[in-house]
Computed example of a mutant assay.
Amino acid sequence: MLSLAALPLGVRCVVLEPDPLAPARLCAEHLRAAYTDAAGLERLAACDAVTLEFENVPVEATAALEGRVPLRPSPAVLHLSKHRAREKAALAAAGARVAPYAVIEYAGELAAALSRVGGVGILKTSELGYDGKGQARVSSLDDSRAAWERLGGVSCVLEGLVPFVREVSLGVARGPDGSLAFGPLAQNVHRDGILRRSVFPAASSAATHGRARALAAAVAHAWDLTGLMTLEFFELSSGELIVNELAPRVHNSGHLTQDGGGVSQFEAAVRAALGLPLADFEPLLPCGMVNILGWQEGREPDWDAIDRIPGTRRHLYHKASRPGRKVGHVNVVGSSIDEVLSRMDAVEALLDG
C-alpha cells in the first residue's frame, strides 16, 4: 500500500523482504532476501530514503544503512519503539501519560511488579509481539509465573489495567524540516487482541481530539521523528488520554484514510520520508474500516455481497489465507457516522459468515 501510494507521486519503491509472496512484489522492485542481506542492503542504500512498514527489523540491517541513506524513521526512534520499557520511559519523558507498569527481567520480580500495578494486569514481552501475541492477562502470582514461562522467560513489561471508555489512535507525519501533518482520531474495537474495526470520527470530544494532536506533536518533536508514527490511546471518562502503544509506521487503524477523501496515511508516510510537502491526512467524510481475517478452507467470504453494500471498497493483500491472519480490509464511506456504522455492521456480518 505504501508502494501504490508512491506511484502517483512519481516515486518507485524497492522492497527488501524474504517472503517470496510479499504483496509489494506486485507493484515494486522486490528484493527477495534476508533483511540483513548485504546485496539487498546495498540496493537500498542507493535509494533516496529508506522507511519500513513493521518495526521488527534487525538492528544489523539499520546499522548497515545508517549514514549511507536517510533512514526514516531513524534507528534512534526504532531503538525506543522496539522495546516496551524504553518506549514507555521515552513517552513519559515527552510528557505523555502511560499506564502503570513494571519491568520484569527475572521471575523473582513478578510479585513486586504485580503489587505495583494493582494485582491485575497484562504481561507483555518487551520485544516482538503484535495482534495479541506475546502477552497474557494475569490476576495472581501463580498466573504471572505461568504466563512468564509461556512467554519464554524473557524480559517483559507488566501493565496495569486502565478503566477506559474507548480506544482511539492518531497518526502524525513529520518532515525533515520539522513540519507536521496529522491523521484522524480513529475509534478502535479489538477482538482477541486483534484490531477488528476502526471508525472516523471517534466519539471523543473536540478537546480530546486536540489533546491527541498535542501529545502526538510532543512525542514526534521529542523523538526527532522524520517519517510517520501512530499513537494508540486509552481515553478515560474525563477525556484524558493514556498512551497504550506507539508504532513508528503506518497503522492498521489508519487504513480508512484510503477512501475517506483527501490524503491517505500511506501517501503521508511517503511524503514525510522524502521531504515532500505535507498536509493533514484526516478524511473528509465519515468512514470506517473492517479487517478481513483469514478463513477456514471452503469458507471464503461472499465478496459479491460485500461489494453490493453501498460505500464499500475492499482491499485484499494477496496473502495466503490462514485463520486469524490479516489478509485484507474493507473500507466503508457514508454521509453520516450512523450510515457508516450500519454499513460496517453489514460487512462484519458477512465476513463472520
Rank of each mutant, 00 (worst) to 15 (best):
K82C: 02
V117K: 04
G171Y: 09
L256I: 10
Y35F: 13
Y35D: 05
I306G: 00
A33Q: 07
R86H: 13
E55P: 00
V243W: 01
R150Q: 13
G261V: 05
A45Y: 09
P184L: 13
G288K: 00
L91M: 08
V50G: 02
L351S: 00
K82T: 10
E17D: 14
N56D: 15
R211G: 01
G129T: 09
S237P: 00
L21I: 14
W148V: 04
P23C: 13
A217G: 00
S336D: 13
Y106R: 14
L71Y: 08
F182T: 05
L225A: 01
I242T: 11
D259P: 06
H30Q: 12
A24M: 03
T226N: 03
P277H: 14
C47W: 07
Y130G: 01
A349P: 01
K133R: 15
L341R: 15
A247C: 07
A279K: 02
G121E: 06
D352C: 10
E87N: 09
E167K: 04
V77T: 09
R249P: 07
E29F: 08
D192T: 10
A320M: 12
R196H: 15
R343I: 03
L151D: 10
L44H: 06
D280H: 05
G353R: 14
G260E: 04
D304S: 12
G261A: 05
S144V: 06
G262V: 03
G239A: 06
A272Q: 02
L293T: 02
D192A: 14
N56E: 10
R308M: 09
A273Y: 03
G275P: 06
A92S: 15
F164C: 02
E105R: 14
A203S: 15
P18R: 15
G160L: 06
R299P: 00
R322V: 08
N244G: 06
F281M: 08
S169F: 01
R343V: 04
S238V: 05
A203T: 14
V327Y: 05
A85N: 08
A28W: 04
G175T: 00
E245M: 02
G10P: 03
D307K: 10
K319F: 08
V330E: 04
E149A: 12
V243D: 04
G119M: 09
A93I: 10
A272V: 04
H83F: 10
G132H: 09
P163M: 13
G260I: 01
P248V: 05
R86D: 03
K326P: 00
D142L: 15
V327N: 06
K82I: 05
R191L: 12
V69M: 02
N252P: 05
L21V: 15
I337S: 11
G153L: 03
S342G: 12
D304L: 11
G294L: 04
G227W: 01
V270S: 00
L256K: 02
D48F: 09
A38R: 15
K133S: 12
A22N: 13
V168I: 15
Y317I: 09
Y106L: 13
L9N: 09
E267W: 02
A136L: 11
A181H: 08
V162Y: 07
S205E: 11
L161N: 07
V57T: 10
L41C: 03
L195D: 09
I337F: 04
K88Q: 07
I104R: 00
R314K: 12
G210H: 11
V330Q: 04
